[in-house]
Design a protein around this nucleic acid. Sequence first.
DNA 1: ACCGCCGGGTGCC
DNA 2: ACCGCCGGGTGCC
Length: 880
Amino acid sequence: GERNYSWFSSSDFYSSLGLEDFPSVGDISGTEEDTESAILYGTLRGSVVGLRYYTGIVNNNEMVALQREPNNPYDKNAVRVNNVNGDQVGHIKKELAAALAGIMDSKLAVVEGVVPYGAKNVFTMPVQMSFWGREENREAVVDQLKKHGFKLAPPLKESRFGSKWISGRAGPSYSAPVHAAVQLTTEQLKSEFDKLFEDLKEDDKTCEMEGAETVGTLLLPHQKQALAWMVSRENSNDLPPFWEERSNFYYNILTNFAEEKRPENVRGGILADDMGLVIILNKAVIFFLYRTCVHVSYLVHFNRWKILYSFLLCRVKRLQGTIRFLNFYFALNVQSVEKKYSDDGPRATLIVCPLSVLSNWIDQFEQHIHQDFNVNIYVYYGSDRSKDPSVLSEQDIVLTTYNILATDYGMRGDSPLHRVKWLRIVLDEGHTIRNPNAQQTKAALNLEGHRRWVLTGTPIQNSVKDLWSLISFLKLKPFTDREWWHRTIQRPVTMGTAGGLGRLQSLIRSITLRRTKTSKVKGKPVLELPERKVLIQHVTLTEEERQVYQSVKEEGKAAISRFFSEGTVLAHYADILGVLLRLRQLCCHPHLCVNTSSSFSADNKTPEELHETLVNKMKLVLSSGSDEECAVCLESLTVPVITRCAHVFCKPCIFEVIRSEQPNAKCPLCRNGLRVEHLVECPLEEEIDSSNGKKSDQEWISSSKINALMHALIELRRDSPNAKCLVVSQFTTFLSLIENPLKESGFAFTRLDGSMAQKKRVEAIQCFQSSQAGSPTVMLLSLKAGGVGLNLTAASRVFLMDPAWNPAAEDQCFDRCHRLGQKHDVVITKFIVKDSVEENMMKIQNKKRELAAGAFATKKPSASEVKQTKINEIKALIDL
DNA sequence: ACCGCCGGGTGCC
DNA sequence: ACCGCCGGGTGCC
């Protein structure tokens, strides 16, 4: 029925952007300078004039930024020259500026400058410019320069300036030796990058901090370690990375910029931790660290702490033997406590997280903080959130989401979050801000507060590029400006310039604490997780099932090869997904695909009718529970919307496309016109629980896969009667079909799927996690149900009934039981039907895994590459 | 001389 | 700027 779907009018286009939990949408519009495929065209010597009018000074060999100044009243071609600090040094001489203006404005090339000598000149100084751009723009740039009488010199050779460059750390980037540089292969980069984090684990971050013995709470070694590291980070007086003290100024060895003011180091850093629950404990630690000076579990001391506070400051010595935690801290930095954490300083810690983990945080605080302790926590969320900044600044902790942060920031100047000076700012799942152009990133970067932390399991998702937002958030000079980040770190790394990776490594090392499930502290694993094994169990269809499967397959294959020969594959995308879906369903159970029509969009239909059938077909595919992918973000669909051309994308992704390409946005897959008012939203799963509407007209029958599952379950019950297991499928209808034999064989089971209300979910989880006799041993789980935080550690077996397109979606599901708290080895069984679309899906999954493993430092595939990949996948899936 | 040359005034874009 | 450029003063050898 139509009522399950909402149609957008253009009026709710912007309001609907308030939707929560958008993944950060990658920039696919191509407006962003395509920095990753830039090459060096050549160099040009010019001059900077008007020095005496400006205060900005430079050193010899210092990098400078060239900035267009189109509104200059004297010359619309004006190009400003700024030093690394952003202070104006002068202008590019007008004849040269006239040549540069066009190139810069049309983004044909990026022009970078270095002052090679003469930095102390009074009136003019030389500037060595490098021109970077994509190969196809080289001619245009050369022509443009020629028109104004300039000619590029070939890139400077390494030998000229190179000695510094190879030495591993510093070097002016104008000498980037493109020809000499050895482009690392993806694999090399990947392994280099792994090393980058490996090395982090064995350095001095292994110092542990003891908890208060009087309370007797046990902190795990890696938690103590993290605690100590964070305390030292918040109090460190070290210079930030790449800065040196020289006689009476501070010198940046990457840009050669110097200033008298001591550059501030970040009072914080990145906690790159992939250990699920552990991170939550760590989160709690750090938030209470100074304001209350206790670990959450030490909150017993909170009231006493208030009394102790002034007492401590004058009696540190006496207390040293009493509370070792405080001892450690005060021994470190008695004065700064007084100064920095006295009651007139900022009080509130801001925690920003995705909506999906907001409740996690609230739960954590509720669990650990007894109401008697007056720790004020304010959840800044919902329409009744306070607009009064002073309400926020009086809290101990303010919790909010990235989308609230961005929405508020949107109404300029009136965001309470941005008017408070925070004691500490924490970005949870910090990689959420990896897109520098996203509103939430800008909003996060503009928060005020000295202690800044980023929590993330995946600091680098696709490329070094992703790190910029995080580094910028940490306010590390000079990287807050993307140009310096790019010139000193990103480009050297991606181009494989000698020393580039070393730089990145020392940067990461100085600000990151990284622990993975396999990290070690003093030779012992930080976290001893039981093993995880994945078994593939092949299933053979019965003669009867095979017949049905084969006939559907042949029919589908014929249609799809017709689409190929007609060149209408993408136009029939919904049809094709429909065929694949039917095949996948037939692998599971013949009753699954009763509602999916087999007829193809006939040619005698009007375009209007055709469009409607296709869109309806896509709705069916989506509502079946199938975990389809978005061609923009390449991940599982979050909030799917269907375009008029019957392609499906995440709502935020496609809105971003429309926003950035307006007014004539085109479908990323087929380049047909996109209109907001044509988008159809489609819930991921039928809200009406399919188990209620069981097809009464169909008698229950089993299937090969169900038989295989039941066989395994019964065997498991015989061998280890207490073992609990998850039975996972994308298709909730399939889960319903499985209920029947479970009942018949006397299994106590529970169920968790997307259609359940929050309260019922919690019940189902608690019930399943319970160790009481008679508690369910089986949980029927829909692949996408629940957030990342879902804890199903009671299960030590997983039966994955059907493969997903996206291997990451499967892994995420497995991690719900393979995580901290799991006592047993986890065995995962994937049921795969032999000689079927499922086997082909596995092949594609493996390819994706390889791709993901090598994805570091490679650029995001373009729309046409995505399109080609999709087409190749279709061929592989249907054996064409 | 509707030139050349001299030397003072002057100076980003 | 110890430059270039401008424009006024000037004018055989």
